[in-house]
Design a protein around this nucleic acid. Sequence first.
RNA 1: GCGCAGGUGACAGAGUGGUCAAUUGUACCUGGCUGUAAACCAGGCGGCCUUCGGCCUACGCAGGUUCGAAUCCUGCCCUGCGCA
Length: 414
Amino acid sequence: MENFRIVKKIKGTLGRAGTLVTAHGVIETPAFVTVGTQAAVKALTMEQVRAVGAQVVLGNTYHLYLEPSPELVKKAGGLGKFMGWEGPTMTDSGGFQVFSLGAGLGSKVGKVDRTNQSGTIRTKGSMVKIDEDGVTFRSHLDGSSHRFTPEHSIQIQHRLGADIIFAFDECTSPEASKNYQKEALERTHRWAKRSLEEHKKSEQSIFGIVQGGRHEDLRQRSARALARMDFDGFGIGGSFDKKDIKTAVGWVNKILPEKKPRHLLGIGEPEDLFGAIEKGCDLFDCVAPTRLGRHGMIYTARGKINIFKEKFRQSFLPIEKGCGCCVCSNLTPNPLSQGEREEKYPPLWGGSGRGFYSRAYIAHLFRAHESLAGTLASIHNLYFIVNLVKNIRQSILDDKFSKFKNAFLHKYRS
RNA sequence: GCGCAGGUGACAGAGUGGUCAAUUGUACCUGGCUGUAAACCAGGCGGCCUUCGGCCUACGCAGGUUCGAAUCCUGCCCUGCGCA
């Protein structure tokens, strides 16, 4: 697709930096896509999302279909307009919910396998039924029954009007038999074709989704099948084993056409990002920064910290010294230019740009159940990840990817 | 001073003769979270011991009745409300 241009490659690997042009602006890749499932980045305003440097926001077809309805979003002028985001947008097809509301429920297998870990699972009971033609869902809101077919998903996404949409797919559980996964894969390919046919030539771009679970042959088969179809780019879906996300991604990106963008769906921890970028992925979305943030887990250069820990109660330091986010280093973001500000406001007004929210304060907010807690943590986390990917991009441009990666990971794991 | 009500683990608040180391909620602690059913979920939460088992200390304080008491009786201390 001519909208995507590779600017620089990481030599000896599949990795690259590029630009992806959309009707609402250019995305510099690799880029981290902010997740805003229900036309909202949880706990954040779009001003805050913009302020951390986010380039794209991703909504979800299933959620927006249930509430407030595709018709209403369309009437509002499309997803971006509706939520107050002027930049590029994407929508996921609802395919992931086939898994997360289906086989994923009551299982320890999520987006990333954690069957070997302690910890526990959420409620169980599938709310999904799959057949050749499509999927019957039970609404998580009221239990009502709904049906998605590939055509239906695409029609909804047309109404939602994001710049980039995804084909309807089935994300299988790795616990399913290989035989089933193969079947599901073939079906997903048929669905991809139907999605593409329904899409025809719209101004929106459409990405097809590669599946295939943990199996090399299935992954390659899927990549080959999708590569033959006329998609504008590709999503790489599936539930992964943490330690071989990179490997699995490598299998498929070796096959997918180089000139088209690749979006690794739902992946987003720092270690994973490096691996996937090296293996040729251009886009990533992940709920981790915002979800973890709301749950009190905060990214730092030395790894994640749990702000609920006793030791942070009296820590009057910023989450991370030197962090450029407005939580750590700029208590009052300055909306005015330097000169203007000094004229308009006396020095005591604040806005020095030197303040910060302390760990103790944020820890307090969490304990007090103040929603500001989730907001501050989300701002910091989103900034952390978005900027990590930006820095990775810069390191590629500067021919210093490996060096940057090693330095970052060394510190992050310490 | 009299009358009534009551004193339970960090707090709130169940239990009112054995099944009680004591329901429940909150707080607290520990884990988990990767295309968001997620400002959520799970576990722990008197002490000691290697055990889905055992021992010790516990329901204001001190005695008593009982095979057995947080639960019944007596006295004391304290709190709240009402009346003087």
